[in-house]
Design a protein around this nucleic acid. Structure first.
Length: 232
DNA sequence: AACCAGGACGTGA
DNA sequence: TCACGTCATGGT
């Protein structure tokens, strides 16, 4: 087992299954943002796939709690309803997603994505196609592929950079695709593992990588695999 | 009260 | 290519 696999094992042992990507579900108490640990079958409907795509756009450089509010508002104006969303004016989208920030840009991104999504006809998009859409960068594209379409495309975010730079396994200045490739070369392509790994990285980062003075406290630094001579 | 959050795009050099 | 500036709300 290489360092990247050992770290995955360790994180999974620490935090358990994360149940990403969370979905909005209507319950008696109201609209709830629900995680679904160990259920790797989700998403099962086009509507759930679409909602994940919306969340992926809305969460760009934004805390998830703010995205939940935006998704809740979108739900109430029927913008998460595949039969109705195209007809909604962009200004109404803007009002709804305001809590998630960057609402002018993100409303445009949603409209751009919609134009693409509804001509897809339920096929699986390629990474290149997603990247060609205005507003969809590498991380958003990979999130959509991995969590909405169950394609084994590893997601790299700022937390991934932070943690693995601190562990000495990558260099800070590496480009997105470089880092993505390193992970994909070290970890056998598996949708469930890729989904869990990224979610675990985010969970772990929230414990040790919010502020710089905590980086040194990361228990992963003590893993034997990270001793100088065993780093590959 | 700065600082950050599950980034991406536009610009000038 | 690359380093910056911009986009925006809400919690700590």
């Amino acid at each position: 087992m290489n360092s990247f696999e050992k770290i995955y094992q360790h994180l999974f042992h620490m935090y358990g299954p994360q149940g990403w990507w969370p979905l909005m579900t209507m319950k008696k108490i109201g609209l709830i943002c629900d995680y679904h640990p160990k259920d790797y079958n989700i998403p099962t409907t086009p509507s759930q796939i679409y909602e994940i795509c919306m969340g992926a756009i809305l969460t760009q450089n934004t805390a998830w709690r703010n995205v939940v509010q935006a998704l809740t508002n979108l739900y109430h104006i029927h913008a998460l309803d595949l039969k109705k969303t195209q007809a909604i004016h962009i200004n109404r989208i803007k009002e709804a997603i305001r809590p998630a920030g960057y609402f002018n840009q993100k409303a445009k991104k949603i409209k751009e994505f919609n134009a693409f999504y509804f001509q897809l006809n339920y096929q699986i998009p390629s990474r290149e196609e997603l990247l060609s859409i205005w507003g969809i960068g590498p991380e958003t594209a990979d999130s959509i592929l991995l969590y909405a379409y169950k394609q084994a495309s590893f997601v790299v975010d700022t937390y991934t950079r932070r943690i693995f730079t601190n562990l000495g396994l990558i260099q800070e200045q590496m480009k997105y695709d470089e880092i993505k490739n390193i992970f994909e070369q070290h970890i056998l392509a598996d949708v469930e593992i890729y989904q869990e790994y990224h979610a675990l990285i985010v969970q772990h980062a929230k414990q040790y990588y919010q502020k710089k003075d905590k980086y040194a406290l990361d228990p992963l630094l003590k893993l034997p695999v990270l001793s100088p001579k065993s780093i590959q």
